[in-house]
């Protein structure tokens, strides 16, 4: 279980898979993200926490290529990602879930997961066209379907042919995780996976995460709920007012003055 991982302290054996160095982003005069540096290694779960408005969402957008950073350097593995569109990030081995699940409600669970595994086949307009022609004759999803069934089993998703509209929010989040995992990403970003507060979802997510890191994936969990995140990560990064306020093990972080200052508004001491 991951709690063991947390207790064993920071693992620094793995290769650095996600690194941000001095990343900054400002809108007009407002500096939403100031010189943030963080890294996530293979087999490690890092929690990015901070109150609303701390700059987490902006940082996520910058990492995923939805917005461009003004300064700094973002790498996935050895590949420089700064300034590339989000679809390049995926091809470099980066997967993500969304704060508000992004699923087509009138499509089935299987279909919503499937897209996570076909990105490589749709590289250029010609290949997209080729996929369309091929798809009319042969679906070509046998291997993918087997993997989807496995993943669904692992993540406790039942009824792959249900419509997503019939699922609870917690189940929808798991579908997103399955989609993100289908192509065995090297880096996984979970954006607010515990928002909406479904306790069953938390335990499911915890189990899922421990399996994922066993396979050498680097995981970044972004959430404002420190308690839940602290219980399942190896390391916590606390953001406040756009900058990193503290980095360390969950135990260190929870005991830190910065954490108290940020979350309880009290002064250090």
């Amino acid at each position: 279980m991951t709690t063991d991982g947390a207790a064993s302290g920071v693992r620094d054996t793995g290769e650095v898979l996600l690194s941000c160095v001095d990343v900054g982003k400002s809108y007009g005069g407002v500096r939403a993200v100031r010189d943030v540096s963080l890294e996530v290694r293979a087999g490690e779960i890092v929690g990015l926490v901070g109150p609303n408005g701390a700059g987490k969402t902006t940082l996520v957008d910058v990492i995923t290529g939805q917005q461009q950073a003004n300064t700094g350097d973002i790498r996935i593995g050895a590949i420089e990602m700064t300034g590339s569109p989000s679809r390049r990030a995926r091809l470099a081995g980066f997967s993500r879930t969304f704060q508000h699940p992004q699923l087509a409600l009138d499509m089935t669970v299987r279909e919503n997961i499937l897209i996570g595994g076909v990105g490589e086949r749709f590289g250029s307009p010609w290949r997209i066209f080729g996929q369309a022609v091929a798809g009319a004759f042969h679906p070509g999803t046998k291997a993918l379907d087997r993997r989807i069934a496995e993943l669904a089993n692992d993540l406790g998703i039942h009824g792959l042919h249900r419509e997503v509209a019939d699922l609870t929010l917690g189940e929808q989040r798991m579908v997103e995780v399955a989609r993100a995992l289908l192509r065995r990403p090297r880096v996984l970003l979970l954006d607010e996976p515990f928002a909406g507060g479904d306790p069953r979802g938390v335990s499911g997510m915890t189990n899922a995460l421990s399996r994922i890191v066993e396979q050498g994936c680097a995981v970044l969990v972004v959430d404002h709920n420190v308690d839940i995140v602290a219980s399942l990560v190896d390391r916590l990064v606390l953001m406040d007012q756009g900058a990193v306020a503290f980095q360390g093990t969950p135990a260190q972080a929870l005991a830190s003055a910065q954490m108290r200052a940020v979350y309880f508004g009290g002064t250090a001491g």
């Binding site: 995923t64 939805q66 569109p85 989000s86 679809r87 990030a89 995926r90 997967s95 993500r96 969304f98 992004q102 699923l103 087509a104 409600l105 009138d106 499509m107 279909e111 919503n112 499937l114 897209i115 996570g116 076909v118 990105g119 086949r121 749709f122 997209i128 996929q131 369309a132 091929a134 798809g135 009319a136 042969h138 679906p139 070509g140 999803t141 993918l144 989609r179």
Partner: peptide, 20 residues
């Protein structure tokens, strides 16, 4: 087919298509 799935997802959640 995968193409059909991608295209239909594009209609509702284009950012997922890009993120994939």
């Amino acid at each position: 087919s995968p193409y059909g799935v991608v295209v239909r997802l594009r209609k509702d959640v284009p950012q997922v298509v890009e993120a994939s």
